[in-house]
Write a protein that binds this DNA or RNA. Structure first.
Length: 596
RNA sequence: GUGCUUAUAGCUCAGCAGGAUAGAGCAGUCGCCUCCUAAGCGACCGAUGGGGGUUCGAGUCCCUCUAGGCACACCA
């Protein structure tokens, strides 16, 4: 189904052509002066130079041609050469009625693309913290938007479950529990099935282990020695792990198991679900063949002990270092894993796109990896590798978000805090039971959290102000939910004693009704834009504006007090609005309560 | 040092491909519940970092300055 704006543009292009001008000047855009018109065409201004004619003459000619077209209710030239357009009432109404019968609101679908979305990226050595919030929320929304457009989407959590960090955790566990069977070379029985430690332990163990490898400047030789030894042991553990040494590998599996269980619970709280729970470790089996391939292609060479691939390109404005494929000693590194993962995804899914939702500070790293992957031909040459870098979530002071005492806040705690604030808002309400209040505050809290994040542009840093996001006034998730709940409540009230004969919206009488229809008619346009640009924020803005218009309509029009034909039209309109809001928040990754 | 990026109202953000009077929200001031949920609606107040340039027209494009942020191979 064509966009409403495209229908208007088709006419306008035709008119330009008929007047002897290039049809490219018939571009129609949303009006930036809603007080004057609904759509506008600025083509005459642009065409003036080329045709050496004053723009208002061109505009007048075109407007004259358009007078007979039934698509326009109003079309006029305003000096110096703007063409102002209002869409005809019939076209607008019919268009909305068609949307009502379209499952996907009249979006043109782009089928059969396979898209892998890499988001999440939690480290299994530690619990989720606020830093994991953005990738989870953004990635989930991008995934849902791509699914809506009928793509075959694979969301991969891509666990950080490999490398030195694991060796460090194991070393610390060994230090604390040397008696564990895992470390007993002679043990050949079955390892303990029960969990010997919790996620909370891990939360403390990793930083502890990490700090043991670092020494202050004025440390004694003995202290330095100790730190080095610890680090060496961690390296050895990592090597053991990589060769799947009995005990060490089993302990690692235990860590993964405990951690993943906790991660799943936490992601569930965020309404975030992954299709794949693979990690860095899963790509290791491709490293060898990948390196062989690079050698065969002659692109891999030794540099200062490491194995690297040049990725400099002629148009670069600065020097780009080679991509390190293997560290000194043939050890895997960050790049190795990401490259091997690309190879793995190519083999498993043959994707058209891989989208990386990662911190934007990693951009250079991914430029190197992507280039290297192409040079090494481990990815189909037509496949797109997309880096979707997100900005930092800062606190009110503009610095990276921290707890009050300066620590890293656990994601769980953040969610709890948001929920608590919502709960407080409802605490005194006598309308709801205690149980309902807890349930509603979780749903509303999540909407506050997610909407606050998604309404910002992905690549920008943003200020996370918990008080602002939970104040629920203005452009917030709860405002959207409140509007939807209102609509649902009216519909419920109507359907208590009535049924509807025909689902059809009538021509708008009030100006505010017309505005709603106009907004509705643009939903498909917004969805396509946010899909193509990977920009959930466009949906956020749209829903907010739609809610605004609806709420002022609600204020002006007694929706249920109209006579029968008009009433049915109102109900049809509300049903459509309900669908749009529900679809919109679904794509953003949250849901609405029945009441609030 | 090299490169990337950001700068819009007191605060937090929009601004579509260069178009008309730069939009919101919060904060502040003032109105609206006998009426489908006041987590709502309406009104007022308030802004493009500095300087050049391109253009009929610049928040948007180019240059430059200033101030932040970030990245630059053996941590991931």
């Amino acid at each position: 189904m064509k966009k409403l704006i495209s229908l208007l543009q088709d006419r306008m292009e035709k008119a330009f052509q008929e007047c002897g001008y290039d049809n490219e000047y018939g571009k129609v855009i949303n009006s930036n002066r809603p007080d004057l018109c609904e759509f506008q065409c600025d083509g005459a201004l642009a065409a003036a130079k080329r045709y050496k004619k004053p723009p208002f003459i061109i505009a007048e000619e075109v407007v004259e041609k358009c007078k007979d077209y039934k698509e326009f209710e109003k079309i006029e030239m305003i000096k110096p050469g703007f063409i102002n357009i209002n869409v005809s009432k019939d076209l607008l109404t019919n268009y909305c009625n068609r949307i009502m019968n379209e499952e996907k609101f009249g979006c043109q679908m782009y089928k059969n693309k396979t898209v892998v979305i890499d988001y999440g990226g939690p480290n299994i050595a530690k619990p989720l913290h606020v830093g994991h919030l953005r990738p989870a929320i953004i990635g989930e929304s991008i995934k849902r938007i791509h699914k809506f457009f009928d793509n075959n989407v694979i969301g991969d959590v891509h666990l950080g479950d490999w490398g030195l960090q694991m060796g460090l955790v194991i070393e610390e566990l060994k230090f604390r529990h040397p008696d564990w069977d895992y470390f007993n070379e002679n043990f050949d029985g079955e390892y303990c099935k029960e969990a010997l430690f919790t996620v909370t332990d891990l939360e403390e163990i990793y930083p502890c282990a990490n700090s043991k490898t670092k020494v202050s400047e004025n440390a004694t030789e003995e202290e330095k020695e100790k730190a080095n030894e610890f680090k060496e042991n961690a390296r050895t553990n990592t090597a053991y792990l990589q060769e799947k040494k009995r005990g060490y590998y089993d302990l690692w599996k235990k860590i993964v198991e405990i951690s993943v269980k906790d991660l799943k619970e936490n992601y569930k709280k965020l309404n975030v679900f992954f299709d794949l729970w693979l990690g860095e470790s899963d790509s290791q089996k491709y490293v060898k063949s990948m390196v062989e391939k690079m050698k065969d292609l002659g692109i891999l060479y030794e540099s200062n002990g490491a194995m690297v691939v040049d990725v400099q390109e002629p148009n670069d404005t600065t020097q780009i270092n080679p991509c390190m494929v293997l560290k000194t000693g043939g050890v895997s590194c960050y790049q190795t894993t990401d490259l091997a993962t690309i190879m793995q995804r190519q083999i498993d899914f043959n994707p058209d796109e891989i989208i990386y939702v990662v911190d934007k500070r990693q951009e250079l790293h991914f430029i190197q990896v992507f280039r290297c992957a192409r040079k090494a031909e481990i990815i189909d040459k037509d496949a797109k590798l997309i880096f979707l870098g997100f900005g930092t979530m800062n606190g009110k002071d503009g610095k990276p978000f921290k707890t009050r005492n300066g620590g890293v806040m656990r994601l769980e705690n953040l969610i709890d805090e948001v929920n608590r604030k919502v709960y407080e808002k409802m605490r005194d309400s006598k309308e709801y039971s205690e149980e309902e209040k807890v349930k509603i505050s979780k749903i509303v809290g999540l909407s506050a959290l997610k909407y606050a994040d998604l309404s910002n542009q992905i690549s920008k840093d943003y200020i996370f102000d918990i008080d602002k996001f939970t104040s629920f006034e203005g452009k917030t998730g709860p405002y959207i939910l409140y509007t939807l709940v209102r609509i649902k409540s009216i519909l419920n009230k109507f359907y208590e004693n009535n049924t509807i004969k025909e689902n059809k919206i009538l021509n708008p009488v009030e100006d505010i009704e017309r505005q709603i229809l106009l907004k509705i008619s643009k939903y498909n346009q917004i969805l396509e834009e946010s899909y193509i640009e990977n920009a959930p924020s466009k949906i956020c803005t749209y829903l907010y504006e739609l809610a605004n218009i609806f709420n002022s309509y609600y204020q002006k029009v007694k929706i249920l007090k109209e006579d029968s034909e008009r009433l049915e039209s109102n109900i049809s309109l509300l049903s459509l609005l309900k669908r749009i809001f529900e679809n919109g928040i679904e794509l953003l990754g949250f849901e609405a309560p029945e009441k609030m």
